[in-house]
Computed example of a mutant assay.
Amino acid sequence: MKSTWWRGRQALLALAVVLLAVLATLGFVLSGPGETGQAAPPAAASQAETPSAEPGEPSAPADGGAAVEGMPKADPLSIDVPKIEAKSSLVPLGLNADNTVEVPPVTQPMQAGWYENGPTPGEVGPSVILGHVDGNKQKGIFFRLKELAPGDKVSIARKDGTTAEFAVTKVERVAKDKFPTDAVYGDTTAPELRLITCGGVFDKASHNYLDNIIVFARLIAR
């Protein structure tokens, strides 16, 4: 079944504007100018996701493995990214009273959260998880997110007792004013995952990082 959380292009663009404003708050001073290292380059064409399957059909993995069907809706409980030693429970993130997207509290920079108005991890469609790069003068849960590369694994434990296993397909560092809305939130016919944090150069004037690190992943096991 095609994802139903995205209700039209206008709603998507409106959400993107809100998200851009909120993502600017994800970067806080850790020390000095903050994290300035380069993220992994976008995956080459051979590493990109294969064309989407027909609605309701399992996706065809880029590595030639067995196709994996979407999972039933079930709230996520925790995330584990072994390569960067990132483990956290997941809190639901919705919209604030002013229609800005909620983020995990900066006083708890090791806390990650999932956007509850989107698909749950493992469902068909793009599920989104947000985390701080740093905050409260401490490293954040996604401090090392930029180190991920195609093939790295991400596990999401779900409330129904199942675990959704994802493999990274690409990692991008993009300027916040050029956030790739369609690529992140565009409707898909396969179960996918997005991990988002701040990155790039820390702007002392605005007290924000100038870029976002975005990890794209697909479901490989359930």
Rank of each mutant, 00 (worst) to 15 (best):
M110K: 11
T36G: 13
E35A: 13
L219T: 05
P42Y: 06
E123S: 14
N96E: 13
Q47I: 00
A221E: 05
A45I: 03
R173N: 09
L26E: 13
V29K: 13
V91E: 07
A190F: 03
L19R: 11
K87F: 09
S78G: 06
A44L: 09
I156V: 15
G131H: 14
M110E: 14
F143C: 00
N208S: 15
S46L: 08
D177G: 05
V101D: 05
G34L: 06
S59P: 00
E69D: 08
V154K: 07
V184Q: 05
A112N: 06
A167P: 12
V184P: 06
R144W: 12
H207K: 15
A66H: 10
H207N: 13
G94A: 10
E116R: 15
D160I: 01
P72Q: 11
L19G: 01
A67W: 06
R218F: 01
F142V: 03
A21T: 04
P82D: 04
L90S: 03
T169Y: 01
P105D: 09
K159G: 04
A14Y: 11
E147P: 00
T4Y: 07
G64P: 01
R194F: 05
E35S: 08
R173E: 10
P55T: 06
E49L: 14
A149V: 12
N117Q: 11
R218M: 03
A86P: 09
A43Q: 11
L193Y: 01
P180E: 13
D177V: 11
G34S: 07
F142Y: 14
V91H: 01
M1S: 14
G122Q: 15
L19F: 13
E192I: 05
Y185R: 03
P92T: 07
L193H: 01
A167H: 09
P104M: 03
K178R: 12
V81W: 09
A190T: 13
G199D: 04
P121M: 08
